[in-house]
Amino acid sequence: MANKKGNNTAGMVWEIAEPIAKDLGLQLWDVRYVKEGAQWYLRVIIDKEDGVGIDDCEKMSRALDAPLDEKEIGQNQYILEVSSPGIERELVREEHFDQFIGADVMVKMIRPIEGIGKEFKGKLKSADKQTVTITDHSDENEITINKKDTVYIKLDDFDF
């Protein structure tokens, strides 16, 4: 998860990419700078109300090229990937949680919760900086969990 105000690589890219996305009619969903194997990837994830297409990704990628080169982002060579958050978009930023209060979500925990397990589905009831409260679909009980104890919290866009 990127930190908008931090001076880490993802945070610096966020500062560059957010106004570009707005100019293109897009929402910047997330920025991730990750190492996979020997290769570094700079992933810029964009969204818009009626969905992101390949043309949107291409426009964003082209618009980012020069500013990223100019700022010499990252200490390593990287592959730039621009994509949509997908159907089961992962909620990572506070504004994502705020935007989707009341939505169905899928949760995967790092460690199982007694009586529930590692994975469950529910309705996002509330969220703050550290925790989320979810109404469990299986028994309608409310579960409050620490975000740091999750592998992911994603929108559940499929019917049960």
Rank of each mutant, 00 (worst) to 15 (best):
E140D: 08
L124D: 02
A103I: 14
S126A: 07
M106C: 12
P112F: 04
E90D: 13
L124T: 06
H96R: 10
L68V: 05
T131W: 00
D136N: 13
I134H: 03
K71T: 04
E90Q: 14
P67A: 02
E81M: 10
I79H: 12
T131R: 01
R62L: 10
A127G: 03
I134W: 03
M109V: 11
G122Y: 05
D139M: 01
N141V: 01
I116F: 14
G117C: 03
V92R: 08
S126T: 08
I134Y: 00
L80M: 14
I73S: 03
K125N: 11
R89G: 03
Q99V: 09
I113E: 06
N76H: 15
I101K: 14
E72N: 12
A127H: 02
F120T: 00
R111I: 00
I87K: 15
E114Y: 09
E88N: 09
L64R: 04
L68W: 02
P85A: 14
V107M: 15
I134A: 01
G117P: 02
A66S: 10
Y78C: 13
I134V: 02
N76E: 05
Q99H: 10
K125L: 12
V105L: 10
K118V: 06
R89S: 15
K118D: 03
Q130W: 01
P85R: 08
A63V: 06
Q77Y: 15
L64C: 04
F100V: 14
I87N: 11
R62K: 11
I113S: 04
V132W: 02
I134F: 05
I113D: 05
T131Q: 09
I110M: 13
G86R: 07
L124K: 01
S83W: 12
Q130V: 02
V107W: 08
A66L: 12
N76C: 07
P67C: 01
N76I: 03
E142S: 11
I113Y: 10
M106W: 12
Q77I: 13
K125R: 11
G122W: 01
S126F: 01
L124A: 07
E140Q: 11
E72Q: 07
V92I: 12
E81R: 06
K108I: 05
L91N: 04
D69P: 04
E142V: 03
E70G: 06
K118I: 01
G74P: 02
